[in-house]
Computed example of a mutant assay.
Amino acid sequence: MWEKCKELQNKLLRMRRDLHQIPELGGDLPKTRAYLEERLQEIGIPFEENSFDSGLIATIPGFKDGPVLALRADMDALPITEENEVDYISRHKGCMHACGHDTHMAMLLGAAELLFKNRDRIPGSIRLLFQTDEEGAQGARRMVDHGCMDGVSAVFGTHIGTILSKEIPAGTVICTPGCCMASFDKFIVRIHGSGCHGSTPEKGVDPINIGAHLILSLQEVLAREIPAVKPAVLTVGHVEAGKTYNVIPTEFLLEGTIRSLDKETRDFLAKRIQEISSQTAALFRGSAEVQMIWGAPPVVNDPAMAKLVADCAREVVGAEKTIDHVDAPNMGGEDFAYYLEKAPGAFIFLSSSNKEKGSDVSHHNPRFNVDEDVLWIGSALFVKIVEKYFHIE
């Protein structure tokens, strides 16, 4: 039945563009949820609302009791002002679907329509997870807390775009066994000094000086304390201090992220950020407060489920556009990891990179866009996974 997804392409495109125009942030997504509820009602699929946020859990019952297979799409957008010159540009100023979540919802809706029409062939049930707040790494956890993974036998999700490489052509499917994405966590360091006039720095404690030394010192953790064979990232992405050129401020704010593929490295990075921040501040007569905001753990695909996906991809897009091995995991993060802690499954990448169409721009960029011609592939993959998992001929 997966071939029928090609006939849904125009509908998928319309839904994607509808959703692209109403991006919302975090866990409160009233317009997005209303749109999804309307589409689910049109198809006839029953659903319930997540008790913690705007997430939705819909169920397609098969012809008999059996395994429960979960399919997930994320719903939230990013605080970015869109710069694409398209007639379906975001109508919400300062907010944009710059990571492809609009396509994820559309592709899952398309698959849901076809699966619902063929529910009398499914010896089990399909659970559709429409999840908020992936960007904040909180949505999947809230879905799990609501009970969305109770009784689930396997779970699958897809991410569109150029995550692995913009050189991978549009329509290529990538699904690999084992760890495919890193953990991702945020750290915040507040350095406290003593403000004074810039002409008399000896009368104060300069937090900017402390912050400058701290930024350089933190990079030495990667260079000299983490084995070269263990991938890890420590990035400072935001600093803030002072209001004018001739005043030494009292505080310096530093924010960044750490990425790793195992718990040992993850914990070590957090520990060293705390130690180095405190000791560097003390060295220059200041003090530091460190806050760790823990995100999602690494995304670890079940080998059997990853093989199942790769086999499905070879049927849907062909062997030449199926990748089942990469040399190293991607250091981006995804809270889909929380679902994989509850049931075996796999996270799938669908390339939409096409330079001629301008869809080779990186995620989280104001000009991010996708090659919409691949939308049917995302739906077809979900449907084919259901066929293969349940041995439907």
Score class of each variant (00 low, 15 high):
Ser352Gln: 03
Ala319His: 13
Val374Asp: 11
Leu129Ile: 11
Leu222Gly: 03
Leu308Ala: 10
Phe116Ser: 04
Lys203Trp: 03
Ala306Arg: 11
Pro123Phe: 07
Glu225Gly: 07
Glu251Lys: 07
Ala270Lys: 15
Leu375Ile: 05
Ser194Ile: 15
Val189Phe: 07
Leu8Pro: 06
Pro298Gly: 08
Met75Trp: 08
Ile89Leu: 12
His159Ile: 13
Met75Thr: 02
Gly193Val: 10
Tyr338Met: 05
Tyr245Glu: 08
Phe347Gly: 01
Lys263Val: 12
Val309Ile: 15
Gly171Thr: 10
Gln274Phe: 14
Gly62Lys: 01
Ile43Val: 12
Ala306His: 09
Arg314His: 11
Val299Phe: 00
Met149Glu: 06
Leu13Asn: 15
Ala306Val: 06
His197Arg: 09
Ala111Gln: 11
Val233Gly: 00
Gly332Phe: 04
Lys166Ala: 03
Val247Cys: 07
Ile191Glu: 03
His101Thr: 03
Lys388Gly: 07
Gly44Pro: 10
Arg224Gly: 00
Ser90Val: 06
Gly242Ile: 01
Ser278Asp: 09
Asn209Gly: 15
Glu83Val: 01
Cys99Val: 05
Cys175Trp: 02
Ser51Leu: 15
Thr235Pro: 05
Ala137His: 08
Leu109Ala: 04
Gly195Pro: 06
Gly157Glu: 00
Met1Cys: 13
Asp87Gln: 15
Glu42Tyr: 13
Met305Thr: 08
Leu381Gly: 00
Val247Thr: 14
Glu202Gly: 09
Leu114Val: 07
Glu341Leu: 09
Ile215Ser: 07
His159Gly: 08
Ser199Asn: 13
Asn209Asp: 15
Lys342Glu: 08
Thr162Tyr: 01
Lys357His: 05
Gly44His: 11
Ile293Met: 10
Leu128Pro: 04
Ile174Glu: 02
